[in-house]
Amino acid sequence: KSEEHWTCVVCTLINKPSSKACDACLTSRP
Rank of each mutant, 00 (worst) to 15 (best):
Cys22Phe: 03
Thr12Val: 03
Thr7His: 08
Arg29Thr: 07
Leu13Pro: 09
Trp6Lys: 09
Asn15Phe: 01
His5Lys: 06
Thr7Gln: 11
Ser18Lys: 13
Glu3Asp: 08
Val10Leu: 03
Arg29Trp: 06
Asp23Lys: 13
Cys11Phe: 00
Cys11Thr: 03
Cys11Met: 03
Lys20Arg: 08
Thr27Gln: 08
Cys25His: 01
Asp23Pro: 11
Cys11Glu: 02
Cys25Leu: 00
Leu26Gly: 14
Ile14Lys: 14
Ala21Tyr: 04
Asn15His: 05
Thr12Gln: 15
Ser19Lys: 10
Pro30Trp: 03
Thr7Ala: 11
Cys22Asp: 01
Val9Tyr: 02
Cys22Ala: 01
Trp6Val: 00
Leu26Val: 08
Ala21Trp: 07
Pro17Met: 15
Lys20Ile: 08
Ser19Trp: 04
Cys22Lys: 01
Leu26Trp: 05
Lys1Trp: 01
Lys16Pro: 13
Pro17Asp: 15
Ser28Leu: 11
Glu4Lys: 10
Cys25Asp: 01
Asp23Asn: 07
Ala24Cys: 08
Glu4Gln: 06
Lys16Ser: 09
Val9Ala: 15
Leu13Ala: 15
Cys22Tyr: 00
Ile14Phe: 07
Ile14Cys: 06
Leu13Ser: 11
Glu4Ser: 09
Lys16Ala: 06
Pro17Gly: 08
Leu13Arg: 13
Cys8Thr: 01
Leu13Glu: 15
Cys11His: 03
Ser19Cys: 04
Ala24His: 14
Thr12Gly: 14
Cys25Glu: 02
Thr7Cys: 02
Cys8Gly: 04
Trp6Ile: 14
Pro17Ile: 15
Leu13His: 15
Ser18Val: 08
His5Glu: 05
Val9Asn: 12
Ser28Pro: 12
Val9Asp: 07
Ser2Gln: 14
Ala21Thr: 09
Ala21His: 10
Cys11Lys: 09
His5Leu: 06
Ile14Arg: 09
Trp6Thr: 02
Ser2Gly: 07
Glu3Trp: 05
Ala24Pro: 00
Lys16Tyr: 03
Val9Cys: 12
Thr7Ile: 05
Lys16His: 04
Thr27Trp: 03
Leu13Ile: 11
Lys16Gln: 05
Trp6Leu: 03
Pro30Glu: 08
Arg29Pro: 14
Ile14Asp: 13
Cys8Val: 00
His5Cys: 03
Cys11Ile: 00
Lys16Met: 14
Leu13Thr: 15
Pro30Thr: 12
Lys20Cys: 08
Val9Arg: 10
Ser28Lys: 13
Ala24Tyr: 12
Ala21Glu: 04
Cys25Ser: 00
Ser28Ala: 13
Thr7Gly: 06
Pro17Val: 08
Ala21Asn: 07
Ser18Ala: 11
Ser19Gln: 10
Thr27Arg: 08
Lys1Glu: 05
Thr7Glu: 07
Thr12Tyr: 14
Thr12Leu: 12
Cys8Lys: 03
Lys20Tyr: 09
Ser28Asp: 14
Glu3Ser: 10
Val9Gln: 12
Ile14Met: 14
Thr7Trp: 02
Val9Pro: 06
Cys22Arg: 01
Lys20Gly: 09
Glu3Arg: 04
Cys11Val: 00
Ser18Trp: 07
Asn15Glu: 02
Trp6Asp: 03
Val9Trp: 08
Lys16Phe: 09
Lys20Glu: 13
Thr27Lys: 07
Val9Met: 14
Asn15Thr: 02
Val10Ala: 07
Ala21Cys: 04
Glu4His: 10
Pro17Cys: 04
Val10Ile: 02
Cys25Ala: 01
Ser18Tyr: 04
Asn15Gly: 03
Ser18Pro: 09
Thr7Pro: 04
Glu4Leu: 06
Glu3Gly: 07
Ala21Arg: 06
Ser19Ile: 10
Thr7Leu: 06
Ser28Gln: 14
Leu26His: 12
Arg29Met: 08
Pro17Ala: 09
Ile14Gln: 12
Pro17His: 10
Trp6Ala: 02
Thr12Lys: 15
Ser19Glu: 08
Ser2Met: 15
His5Pro: 06
His5Ala: 07
Cys22Pro: 02
Ser28Met: 09
Ala24Phe: 07
Leu26Phe: 09
Cys22Val: 00
Ser18Asp: 15
Cys11Trp: 00
Trp6Tyr: 06
Lys1Arg: 01
Cys22Gly: 01
Pro17Thr: 13
Lys20Met: 12
Ser2Tyr: 00
Val9Thr: 15
Ala21Asp: 15
Ser18Leu: 11
Cys11Pro: 08
Thr27Asp: 09
Cys22Trp: 00
Ser18Cys: 11
Cys8Trp: 00
Asn15Trp: 00
Cys25Thr: 01
Leu26Glu: 13
Ser28Ile: 10
Asn15Arg: 02
Glu3Val: 07
Glu3Met: 11
Arg29Leu: 08
Ser19Met: 12
Arg29Lys: 13
Leu26Ser: 14
Ser19Tyr: 05
Ser2Val: 05
Ile14Ala: 13
Thr7Lys: 09
Glu3Tyr: 05
Thr27His: 10
Ala21Val: 06
Ser28Cys: 12
Arg29Asn: 15
Trp6Glu: 06
Thr12Asp: 07
Ala24Leu: 03
Leu26Ile: 08
Arg29Gln: 12
Val9Leu: 13
Cys11Ala: 04
Ser2Ile: 06
Ala21Phe: 08
Ala24Thr: 06
Ser18Gly: 11
Lys16Cys: 03
Ile14Asn: 15
Trp6Asn: 13
Ser18Thr: 10
Trp6Met: 02
Asn15Tyr: 00
Asp23Phe: 09
Cys8His: 02
Ser28His: 02
Arg29Ile: 02
Ser19Pro: 02
Ser28Thr: 11
Leu13Gln: 08
Pro30Ala: 15
Trp6Phe: 06
Glu3Pro: 04
Pro17Asn: 12
Glu4Pro: 09
Leu26Tyr: 07
Ala21Met: 10
Ser28Phe: 05
Arg29Asp: 08
Cys25Phe: 00
Lys1Asp: 12
Lys16Asn: 05
Val10Pro: 02
Lys16Gly: 06
Ser18Glu: 14
Ser28Val: 10
Ile14Ser: 13
Ser28Tyr: 05
Ala24Ile: 03
Asn15Leu: 01
Ile14Thr: 14
Cys25Pro: 01
Thr7Asp: 10
Ile14Pro: 13
Cys22Gln: 01
Glu4Thr: 11
Cys22Ser: 01
Lys1Phe: 14
Thr7Ser: 08
Ser2Leu: 12
Ala24Val: 04
His5Gln: 08
Asn15Gln: 06
Leu13Trp: 09
Cys25Gln: 01
Ser2Lys: 13
Asp23Gln: 12
Ser2Arg: 08
Ser2Cys: 01
Pro30Ser: 15
Asn15Ser: 02
Ile14Val: 15
Leu13Lys: 12
Ser2Pro: 04
Arg29Tyr: 04
Glu4Trp: 03
His5Met: 14
Thr27Met: 13
Leu26Ala: 14
Thr27Ser: 11
Asp23Leu: 09
Lys1Ser: 00
Thr12Cys: 06
Ile14Trp: 06
Ser2Asn: 02
Asn15Val: 01
Val9Phe: 06
Thr27Glu: 12
Leu26Gln: 12
Ser28Arg: 09
Val10Lys: 13
Val10Tyr: 15
Ser19Phe: 06
Leu13Val: 14
His5Ile: 06
Ser2Glu: 09
Asn15Ala: 00
Ser19Thr: 09
Ser2His: 03
Glu3Lys: 06
Val10Glu: 07
Ser28Asn: 03
Ala24Arg: 13
Val10His: 04
Asp23Trp: 05
His5Val: 03
Cys8Ser: 03
Glu3Leu: 06
Glu3Cys: 05
Ser19Arg: 07
Cys8Ala: 01
Val9Lys: 15
Ser18Arg: 10
Asp23Arg: 09
Lys16Arg: 05
Ala21Lys: 10
Cys22Ile: 01
Trp6His: 04
Pro30Tyr: 02
Ala24Glu: 11
Lys1Leu: 07
Cys8Arg: 02
Asp23Ile: 13
Ser2Trp: 04
Glu4Phe: 05
Thr12Pro: 12
Cys25Trp: 01
Ser28Gly: 12
Thr12Met: 10
Cys11Asp: 10
Leu26Asn: 10
Lys20Ala: 12
Arg29Phe: 02
Glu3Thr: 10
Ala24Trp: 03
Leu26Arg: 13
Leu26Lys: 15
Cys22His: 01
Cys8Tyr: 00
Cys11Gln: 01
Asn15Met: 07
Lys20Gln: 13
His5Tyr: 12
Val10Cys: 04
Ser19Ala: 13
Pro17Trp: 08
Thr12His: 15
Ser19Leu: 10
Cys8Leu: 00
Trp6Ser: 04
Ser19Asp: 12
Cys25Gly: 01
Ser19Asn: 13
Ser19Val: 10
Val9Ile: 01
Arg29Cys: 12
Thr27Leu: 04
Lys20Asn: 08
Asn15Cys: 00
Cys11Tyr: 00
Asp23His: 11
Thr27Cys: 10
Asp23Ser: 11
Lys16Leu: 07
Leu13Gly: 15
Lys20His: 08
His5Asn: 14
Pro17Glu: 13
His5Arg: 04
Thr27Ala: 12
Cys11Gly: 07
Cys11Leu: 00
Lys1Ala: 05
His5Asp: 05
Lys20Ser: 07
Cys8Pro: 04
Glu4Arg: 04
Cys8Asn: 02
Asp23Thr: 15
Leu13Tyr: 15
Pro17Ser: 11
Glu3His: 04
Ala21Leu: 07
Lys1Gln: 00
Arg29Ala: 14
Ser18Met: 09
Val10Gln: 04
Arg29Ser: 10
Cys22Leu: 00
Asp23Tyr: 12
Leu13Asp: 15
Asp23Gly: 09
Leu13Phe: 09
Leu13Asn: 15
Asp23Ala: 13
Cys25Tyr: 00
Pro17Lys: 11
Cys25Val: 00
Asn15Pro: 02
Thr27Phe: 05
Leu26Pro: 05
Arg29Glu: 06
Ala24Met: 08
Lys16Thr: 10
Lys1Gly: 01
Asp23Cys: 09
Ala24Asp: 14
Cys11Arg: 03
Thr27Ile: 07
Glu4Cys: 05
Ala24Gln: 15
Leu26Cys: 11
Thr12Phe: 05
Val10Ser: 09
Arg29Val: 08
Lys16Asp: 10
Val10Met: 11
Trp6Pro: 02
Ser18Gln: 11
Val10Asp: 14
Ser18His: 14
Pro30Gly: 14
Lys20Trp: 07
Pro30Ile: 05
Lys1Tyr: 06
Ala21Gly: 05
Arg29His: 02
Asp23Glu: 11
Thr12Trp: 10
Leu26Thr: 12
Glu4Tyr: 02
Asn15Ile: 00
Ala24Ser: 12
Lys16Glu: 04
Thr7Tyr: 10
Arg29Gly: 11
Lys20Phe: 10
Lys20Thr: 11
Thr27Gly: 08
Ala21Pro: 02
Thr12Ile: 03
Lys1Val: 06
Ala24Lys: 14
Ser19His: 06
Pro17Arg: 07
Cys8Asp: 04
Cys22Asn: 03
Lys20Pro: 13
Glu4Val: 01
His5Thr: 11
Pro30Leu: 04
Ala21Ser: 09
Val10Thr: 05
Glu3Asn: 03
Ile14Glu: 10
Ser18Ile: 11
Val9Gly: 14
Trp6Cys: 06
Ser28Trp: 05
His5Trp: 00
Cys25Lys: 01
Cys22Thr: 00
Thr12Arg: 15
Glu4Met: 13
Glu4Asp: 11
Ile14His: 11
Ile14Tyr: 05
Pro17Phe: 02
Asn15Asp: 05
Cys25Met: 00
Leu13Met: 15
Ala24Asn: 07
Ser18Asn: 14
Lys16Trp: 03
Glu4Ala: 05
Ser19Gly: 04
Glu4Ile: 12
Ile14Gly: 11
Lys20Leu: 14
Val10Arg: 07
Pro17Leu: 09
Val10Gly: 14
Thr27Pro: 02
Val9Glu: 14
Thr7Arg: 07
Cys8Gln: 03
Thr27Val: 04
Cys11Asn: 07
Ser18Phe: 13
Glu3Phe: 12
Val9Ser: 11
Lys1Thr: 04
Ala24Gly: 15
Lys1Met: 05
Cys25Asn: 02
Ser28Glu: 15
Cys8Met: 02
Pro30Arg: 03
Lys16Ile: 14
Thr12Glu: 14
Cys8Glu: 03
Thr12Ser: 11
Thr12Ala: 13
Cys11Ser: 05
Val10Asn: 08
Thr27Tyr: 02
Glu3Gln: 08
Leu26Met: 10
Thr7Val: 05
Ala21Gln: 07
Lys20Asp: 11
Lys1Ile: 14
Glu3Ala: 09
Trp6Arg: 06
Leu26Asp: 12
Lys1Cys: 00
His5Gly: 04
Asn15Lys: 01
Pro30Asn: 03
Cys22Met: 03
Ser2Ala: 09
Trp6Gln: 09
Ile14Leu: 07
Thr12Asn: 15
Val10Phe: 04
Lys20Val: 11
Cys25Arg: 01
His5Ser: 10
Val10Trp: 01
Lys16Val: 06
Thr7Met: 06
Glu4Gly: 05
Trp6Gly: 03
Thr27Asn: 09
Ser2Phe: 13
Asp23Val: 08
Ser2Asp: 01
Ser2Thr: 13
Glu3Ile: 12
Cys22Glu: 01
Leu13Cys: 13
Cys25Ile: 00
Pro17Gln: 12
Asp23Met: 10
